[in-house]
């Protein structure tokens, strides 16, 4: 594979990767959530499980992201958030998100998704009102950022399935873990 120099745009990567049919993807994810609801019974538990599954995806996905996107190290958290919204979401979900609501010290922001392929056809019934249907996404972001030494907390602040006008993920940087070697020189 030839290596282009410099970072590639999300659109360029999205155009070159293999894709699956959107309905197949949506319904597969739906089937997973449905099964979790049957198995775990508690909506809270399903939220936790989805987040954990997302985390497990995220810690692997970050490698693919770095390999394909050719981005270099981000200088600050702002650039990181932009990278997730503009390149990451485009590359894996085919949608672009926007980043807003920065707090004063630049450690907390919101990623807003106008369009979300995961929720096509979905309508929350009365029995699942507490469900964060897309909780897998927050897990993915948390997992991916943890692998590049950023501890974050990701929560949903707006959810279209609950009647809001968009999906909004609040990403809060808790601390940056300095990179450390697992061994000491004198050992």
């Amino acid at each position: 594979m030839s290596r282009a120099s410099g970072p590639r745009s999300g659109d360029a990567i999205f155009a070159s990767v293999e894709r699956v049919n959107a309905e197949l993807f949506t319904l597969t994810y739906g089937a997973i959530v449905r099964q979790l609801l049957t198995d775990l019974e508690e909506v809270e538990e399903v939220n936790k499980q989805l987040d954990q599954m997302g985390y497990n995806i995220g810690i692997r996905l970050i490698d693919e992201f770095l390999a394909k996107s050719n981005v270099s190290r981000c200088v600050d958290f702002k650039e990181t958030a932009d990278m997730i919204a503009k390149v990451g979401f485009k590359m894996f979900l085919g949608v672009t998100a926007s980043v807003t609501n920065w707090d004063a010290d630049g450690t907390c922001c919101s990623i807003v998704l106008e369009d979300n392929p995961l929720v096509d056809f979905v309508e929350l019934p009365d029995t699942c009102q507490g469900l964060y249907y897309c909780n897998i996404l927050s897990g993915v972001i948390r997992g991916a950022l943890e692998m590049v030494s950023m501890k974050t907390e990701v929560t949903w602040t707006r959810d279209m399935l609950r009647g809001d006008d968009a999906f909004e993920l609040q990403v809060k940087l808790l601390k940056q873990v300095p990179e450390e070697y697992p061994y000491k020189d004198d050992d």
Partner: peptide, 13 residues
């Protein structure tokens, strides 16, 4: 097509 709807159950939407 809604994954949270059980086929054959009442449509409450």
């Amino acid at each position: 097509l809604n994954p949270l709807y059980l086929p054959g159950s009442r449509i409450t939407s």
